[in-house]
């Protein structure tokens, strides 16, 4: 599975939003759910609630199987159930990997897609750990995981970014 971390703190995320924005919180329900709950339904709902509490206009929460499947992203732009909301939205917050982020930029060209994810390599999921561990990092990260894999918290710390939900 793909391992993704979070580039922004919640405060940094808010700095990229305005109270006039119509915000979609968008989350995959696959790899990122297992990245210390960076994505998935619970994280998506919690972020949406947090933003609402802070006075932001969250117009939709969109849970998708995998945002790296371009067709699934495109369907949101054209299907009757979602088309209007996405036409009106101004900002999408992706709780996805970088592939999902790229697909969102491609499909929703007129929206501001917040640059949240940092994808750092491939990892292994075990119910023993209840999460993913990094095993095959992209060389650009400089990370050197041990044989049993690296926790995402440790990877994030070494990279100066964040693991898990906002």
């Amino acid at each position: 599975m793909i391992i993704s971390l979070r580039k922004l703190t919640y405060e940094e995320l808010k700095n990229q939003l305005s109270k006039e924005d119509k915000i979609v919180v968008w989350a995959c329900n696959n790899c990122v759910k297992f990245c210390d709950k960076f994505g998935g339904r619970e994280t998506m709902n919690n972020l949406a609630e947090k933003l609402k509490t802070d006075g932001y206009n969250v117009v939709r929460r969109e849970l998708i199987g995998m945002s790296c499947v371009l067709d699934l992203v495109h369907l949101r732009a054209i299907e009757e159930a979602t088309k209007k909301t996405f036409e009106e939205a101004t900002v999408i917050i992706p709780l996805t990997c970088e592939d999902g982020y790229e697909n969102l930029k491609y499909i929703f060209k007129d929206k501001k897609i917040i640059d949240v994810p940092k994808t750092i390599g491939l990892g292994i999921l075990s119910t023993e750990w209840h999460t993913l561990r990094l095993s095959i990092p992209f060389e650009e990260t400089g990370l050197k995981p041990p044989a049993e894999g690296m926790t995402l918290e440790s990877a994030a710390k070494q990279l100066g970014i964040y693991a898990g939900p906002f």
Partner: peptide, 29 residues
Amino acid sequence: DGGWTSIKQALPNVEVIKGNETLGIMIVS
């Protein structure tokens, strides 16, 4: 390579050979 590593972890007493090369990550349509 993720699967290869997982198999090595699960079966530490057997040599595990890569059948594929891993290029990177994808989008799919």
